[in-house]
Amino acid sequence: MDFWQHIYEHFDPVAFSIGPFHVHWYGIMYVLALVTALLAAKWYVKHDGYPVDEKRLDGYFIYVEIGVILGARLGYILFYDPHTLWYLSHPWEIFNPFHGGAFTGISGMSYHGAVIGFIIATWLFSKRSKTSFWMWMDLVALSVPVGYIFGRIGNFLNQGLVGRVADVPWSIYVNGTPRHPSQLYEAVLEGVFVAAILFFYRKRQRFEGELIALYAILYGTARFVAEFWREPDIQLGFICCGWVTMGQFLSLLMILVGIVGYYLLYRRGKKPLVSARSDI
């Protein structure tokens, strides 16, 4: 086992170089995540009868990608960067995700910020295309967890978002310290686990928005648990009670939003898409 532990410690995060340009494994995994999520969405559109043509689906994903990138960056600055006000005098650094706030040296992107950007992008697209906002949200709830698996594998290969110090046989060395491979834990919990539950539940969907509400609850729970093995953000540490991380706090908010949203949508009693698609 020590052999593999040390292999990881000396693993090169750069997959290959073309002249002065370096292509990182994380970038490759990020592209795979996007492609896989899009392919999954197309599969669900075809097999579950979503009233969406391929051209419109491709256009929607462009909207979402822009929203996710902007939301992830701005979310990091607001939620994780201790020098948020610094950006008021250096606004050009807002769009530099590799500064990590210019002080930490880590990638400055936030998942929870990406969620906010995704929601705004979906709302704008649904208004522009005059389609159902909740239909898109449910479709994304089914598709995103599949791609998320590759995103976390990318974190692992990039040696980012490292785990806490560990003495388990499968620990990996990061800068000479054995740690949990928490990125892989997250790939399973936030990716495989969430994707599988929603895949098998989708035919029982009772109203529009149910799947995205369940996604918020499931992802929030999976992320909250995974944070116990993930090293707290170095610039923040534990934000409460000596054990609560920012990721856990935001995940609790996500769970709460999912529960409240589920209740309100259920009370609203919208006709479920799965019923409308049953005859297709």
Rank of each mutant, 00 (worst) to 15 (best):
P13L: 04
V52G: 08
L265W: 05
S132F: 02
L32I: 15
Q205L: 13
F207L: 09
G19W: 01
G49E: 00
A141R: 02
F156C: 09
G154W: 11
H6R: 13
V188S: 00
Y173W: 01
G108V: 03
V260F: 11
G100A: 06
L252M: 11
V52Q: 08
P51A: 12
G160W: 12
V144I: 15
H22L: 13
R128M: 04
L78W: 02
P51Y: 09
I77C: 04
I106T: 12
Y80I: 10
W134D: 05
Y87D: 02
L273I: 10
Y87N: 08
T104A: 13
A222W: 07
G176A: 04
I259E: 00
L214I: 12
P169Y: 01
D81V: 15
Y30K: 13
Y148H: 12
V260A: 11
I259N: 05
D53C: 15
T104E: 06
I116E: 01
Y8T: 14
G247R: 03
F3I: 14
P13V: 06
R223P: 07
L161A: 13
F118E: 02
Y173N: 07
G191P: 14
E208L: 15
R73W: 00
K203S: 07
W86R: 12
P20D: 08
F193C: 10
F79R: 06
V14E: 00
V140C: 02
P181R: 05
V146R: 01
L214Q: 09
R152S: 15
Y185K: 01
I217E: 09
Y148A: 12
Y80A: 10
G113S: 08
A37C: 15
F200L: 11
L85M: 10
I234D: 02
L57W: 05
W123V: 14
F118M: 11
I212Y: 03
F3E: 02
G147H: 06
G261A: 15
F103S: 13
W25D: 07
R267A: 03
A196Y: 07
E186K: 10
V174E: 04
L157P: 11
L184W: 03
G71T: 05
F249W: 00
R152Q: 13
W86S: 11
I239M: 03
V52S: 01
F16P: 04
F238T: 08
Y8V: 14
Y111E: 04
G27N: 00
G75P: 09
R56K: 15
P169F: 01
W4K: 08
F150R: 08
I259M: 14
K127M: 10
F16M: 08
L78T: 12
I239L: 08
L78P: 10
S89D: 13
V144G: 03
H83C: 04
I28S: 06
V68C: 07
N158A: 15
G209P: 07
D53H: 15
I69N: 03
G113Q: 03
N175H: 05
L38E: 00
I119V: 14
Y50E: 05
M254S: 07
S182R: 03
L74C: 07
R128N: 01
E186A: 14
P91N: 10
F11A: 00
V146L: 13
R267T: 12
G191N: 06
Q205E: 10
